[in-house]
């Protein structure tokens, strides 16, 4: 269980990205975070694995205080949390296989990994992870030779290499064609259901939220304005979250 308690984040330039954010995530949930651009979704996700340092507040994960961890302990927490990004964040000049293997970095020794030496077990599981996202035959291609949707699948394979208990997905489909959105989210849904991996995912399109979320929290100007089930977001709530001028758009194809 993940518990976020009274989380605040103020950037050095004075921007208040998060203000007193508190919520809980039970194991096995598919929690979707919604809100306008700049509402603090990305900051919130990055505070959970401390890519961004929270200014104040506590994050407890299975009883461990993430906010108090440092050094090796923090890296030990991070390696159990997979992360997927809007821009895929693959190393473009490296091969697909190397990108996937990088997911193991938290588990392997420094010297071996610096030399680029990987155990056959790691290589085998990297190939399995790629098979799982249907890209085994692309293992030797350079990452930037792949399409956007394929790159995001490689990123999912990289996250899988961490044997994660939790996956953070920061707008995983915002840079993709609507057609591909479902394909990516279905991979996440599959991991969530079959492997019992908790997923915390930020999304833009409400129809995707309705389709995949088991629970939703909404952020507005860094504050939680809604927590509940996806069905509870009606027109009135929608305007509350996105402002009076917002019009709901659909991601397109329904699954």
């Amino acid at each position: 269980m993940l518990e976020v308690q009274h989380l605040h984040k103020v950037y050095p330039n004075g921007t208040r990205a998060l203000t007193d954010v508190s919520f809980q995530v039970e194991d096995g949930e598919f929690l979707v975070v919604i809100g306008l651009s700049g509402s603090g979704k990305s900051t919130l996700l990055r505070c959970i694995n401390r890519l961004i340092e929270p200014t104040q507040g506590k994050i407890l994960w299975d009883g461990t205080d993430v906010t108090a961890a440092s050094g090796a302990e923090l890296r030990g927490i991070r390696r159990q949390i997979g992360m997927i990004f809007q821009q895929f964040n693959l190393v473009k000049r490296s091969s697909v296989l190397t990108n996937v293997l990088a997911g193991r970095l938290g588990y392997v020794g420094t010297a071996g990994s610096l030399a680029g030496v990987w155990s056959s077990a790691d290589r085998a599981s990297a190939v399995r992870a790629l098979e799982r996202v249907g890209l085994a035959e692309k293992a030797q291609s350079r990452a930037d030779a792949l399409s956007g949707g394929q790159q995001q699948r490689v990123a999912i394979a990289r996250a899988l290499m961490q044997n994660p208990k939790l996956i953070l997905a920061d707008e995983p489909v915002a840079s993709l064609d609507p057609v591909l959105s479902h394909s990516i989210l279905q991979y996440l849904e599959q991991l969530n259901r079959e492997e019992k991996i908790t997923v915390i995912c930020s999304l833009h399109f409400l129809d995707l939220v309705h389709r995949y979320a088991t629970r939703v929290i909404a952020l507005k100007d860094g504050e939680v304005v809604f927590t509940g089930l996806p069905q509870e977001i009606d027109k009135a709530r929608f305007k509350e979250i996105y402002g009076e001028d917002a019009i709901e758009v659909k991601a397109g194809l329904s699954a």
Partner: peptide, 12 residues
Amino acid sequence: GPIEAIRATGAN
């Protein structure tokens, strides 16, 4: 981006 992603895997 890639640096952030590698850091997120628990790499030193």
